[in-house]
Design a binder for these strands. Structure first.
Length: 132
RNA sequence: CCAGUUGACCGGGUGGCCGCUGUCGGAUGGGUAACUGUCCGAUGGAGGAAAGUCCGGGCUCCAUCGAAACACGGUGCCGGGUAACGCCCGGCGGGGGCGACCCUAGGGAAAGUGCCACAGAAAGCAAACCGCCGGUCUUCGGACAGGCAAGGGUGAAAGGGUGCGGUAAGAGCGCACCGGGCGACCAGCAAUGGAAGCCGCACGGUAAACCCCACCGGGAGCAAGACCAAAUAGGGAUGACGCGGGGCUUCGGCCCCAGCCUGUUUCGAGGCCAGAUCAUCCGGGUUGGUUGCACCAGGCGUCCUGGCAACAGGCGCCGCAGAUGAAUGGCCACCACGUACGCACUCUCGGGUGCGUGCCCUACAGAACCCGGCUUAUAGGUCAACUGGCAUU
RNA sequence: GGCCACGUGGCGGAGUGGUGACGCAGCGGAUUGCAAAUCCGCGUACUCCGGUUCAAUUCCGGACGUGGCCU
């Protein structure tokens, strides 16, 4: 199968979500992002919104807006990683451009090195330079 | 014009860019397989409640020869509609509203049982606490044996009400009116309504208390059920059975002999156990896919016929969601609606109209096997019929 | 998606037609030099809305919330 860089996998299994919850996290008001290295080549994306967030039209709408934001910045996802987006209620009121900007910075934060005393961005910059 | 009642309907629109998913047609790949990917074109894609899961069905499996009875549960004025219903329509009784209209689980309490707390003398067979009345006795305070149920008091409820007569005091004791019971007969399919006449009045409430009567109901649910593939394991239980020779045979087996011997046990025996073979049955845990699954009590109509209506029959047209970490959307622009503020004009305070800016960019809410209902949530708007009031003609 | 069960004080938890126990916690008092322990006393909506009944936490219907089971 021809695996282009843009094609994304969808996470569907409970075990995949639990695995991603052990990885690095970053949060904004509209969503939380979890990421972990994976054996698959294509990046995997999963969405989850808890029942506490609202009723089903609101939960569906949150997932749709996040899905649209993910396709808008699909190139930012690193290969061989799984991502899980945890939807929050604020995703309903946030403007779409703000949503995309937040998602881009969160992806960067998740891949930044963990040690706080050494805010090294070389590795991340190297990755970003490979893209056009 | 104002206030209101009932019924029906709508539930943002247009354009652009980027996507999701079903079906059909074509092209081309992948997988051991069940199956499935990619591209192109055409075409479809949430609701009036999709919700709650409160009723009724279809469908599937289980049980059952079939049915009935008992138990349990439900329903409950009458007639009709319906596949069916606890739903709908029409009518009746009761209650509310000036009215249009609204509400109403509304069978049986003289078949039986239970309960009616507190208060009160007494809570259901009637009786008599304070009282009233005359009589006898009296120490003049009252006591005794009778008559009575009007008045007081209690209570949610006290065995008809008001008035007059009557009486020792009273009482349906008598009478008038009202209420109540039985009710020939009349109207109606019926519920029920009307009603001559009779009865001084016997019969409190509660059945969403047990119960009686009539009718209905077998249970579970599409995570029902059917099939396929992979994989764990050659699992467990029961039964039959060794090899050889001979005889009989309906060719399935049966009988005789005691030669051979995998293990173990035994005084001993293919007698038992285990192993091996065959047959039948049972089961754990792990996933994935297909089907069930979208053409049927189907939808629509200024249509026709019957009916007050619910609805039924006919005619014509249409094919109308099928997801599974779960599609039906994301963003932008304009318009309409709503709302807040400001300005201007007008006016019977209220309010109305126009312009600008901001907000919400819509309320309630998302199909999950499918239908018929009920209930609950719902911004705002439209239409029709009717009622009351004011003004005018 | 389907099928069940349960809502009583701040918490746990009886009661089931006649106004509600009990324990822990809290508050006040007694005791003590001061506390603890002990003793006495106190309070708070029976989840909500209708109906039946003279009377409902209880019976009936509806709503809301919480929890469980089935692949």
């Amino acid at each position: 199968m021809d695996q282009t860089e843009r094609s994304l996998r969808r996470l569907t299994k409970r075990s995949q979500f639990l695995r991603a919850a052990r990885g690095n996290r970053a949060g904004r008001s509209a969503f939380g992002l979890q990421a972990i290295a994976s054996s698959e080549a294509a990046p995997g994306i999963g969405f989850t919104v808890t029942k506490k967030t609202g009723n089903s039209p609101e939960r569906n709408r949150i997932k749709r807006r996040l899905r649209a934001a993910v396709t808008a910045c699909a190139d930012d996802f690193h290969p061989s990683h799984d991502y899980v987006l945890v939807g929050r209620r604020e995703a309903l009121g946030e403007s779409f451009s703000r949503l995309v900007a937040d998602l881009t910075t969160c992806i960067a934060r998740v891949h930044a090195p963990k040690s706080p005393d050494k805010p090294n961005t070389h590795g991340r910059a190297g990755h970003r330079n490979t893209r056009p």
